[in-house]
Design a protein around this nucleic acid. Structure first.
Length: 226
DNA sequence: AAGTTAATCAACCGCTTTTTC
DNA sequence: AGAAAAAGCGGTTGATTAACT
């Protein structure tokens, strides 16, 4: 029913050249974002609008923060993922200068593997039934590793690693005592003024958490927040 | 030095949601 | 109210680079 947006003959694909980048930047500087459908033609680019939007958002935007993720960013991603799941744009929205694509890639290539290594299921942040044996040497030198290890110990010792777990239960009452060094504000720096939609979405999610917390009151609590 | 494997990340694809008419 | 268009999102792919044998 609907035509694909990128089926035009002669549309470039693959990596962007410097010239293409420059054209896109120049055009957006002059005319602002939006109307991605018509932007390529107006900017003299042989790309589909979607591709232009992605290139701008993920790479060319001036406020993009490039380079390695800092430890507090990683902590925050783990926490937010536990709360929000794979909602990368929402998670990225709480990390100033980071894009959803970048956060998603970092999760899949670094954090996910790290959690698995620690015997934590990255999907639900629960301790697996048969976690890998701990390494004899001290492999957990980073603050995150320490926090998660401490977390694991707590879960194991309290015998709460079975059954259904959820991000929403017992979050507020436990997180402060469990992670004294963690940024609990769910922000690193003051984010750029949130749009109305983001505020509404976060409000909606918070409400959802509260409701779900009530339902799950008696169930074992999310590993990371115990 | 050459070949192979693993890791990384930019970009694409298809689907969903939102907006417009 | 509903259809079409546009925008947004998340999963996946593939090219490139690094590490290893």
């Amino acid at each position: 029913m609907r035509k694909p947006c990128c089926d035009k003959e002669g549309t470039n694909k693959g990596a962007w050249s410097k010239q293409e980048d420059q054209k896109l930047v120049d055009y957006i500087k002059a005319h602002g974002e939006g109307c991605w459908r018509f932007l390529p033609k107006a900017a003299g680019l042989h790309r589909c609008g979607k591709s232009c939007r992605l290139r701008w958002i993920n790479y060319l935007r001036p406020d993009i923060k490039r380079g390695n993720f800092e430890q507090d960013e990683e902590d925050l991603i783990i926490k937010l993922h536990a709360l929000l799941g794979n909602r990368w744009s929402l998670i990225a929205g709480r990390l100033p200068g980071r894009t959803d694509n970048e956060v998603k890639n970092y999760w899949n290539t670094h954090i996910k593997r790290k959690l698995i290594k620690m015997g934590i299921d990255p999907n639900n942040h629960k301790l697996n039934q048969f976690p890998p044996r701990p390494q004899p040497q001290n492999v957990s030198s980073s603050p995150t590793s320490k926090n998660i290890d401490a977390c694991k110990q707590k879960v194991v010792s309290s015998g709460e690693n079975d059954g259904v777990s959820d991000a929403t239960s017992s979050l507020e009452e436990d997180e402060k005592s469990s992670f004294p060094n963690l940024n609990l504000d769910l922000t690193i720096a003051i984010p750029s003024p949130p749009s109305k939609n983001i505020v509404e979405e976060m409000t909606r999610i918070n409400t959802e958490f509260i409701v779900r917390s009530k339902v799950l009151e008696n169930e074992p609590t999310l590993l990371l927040f115990r």
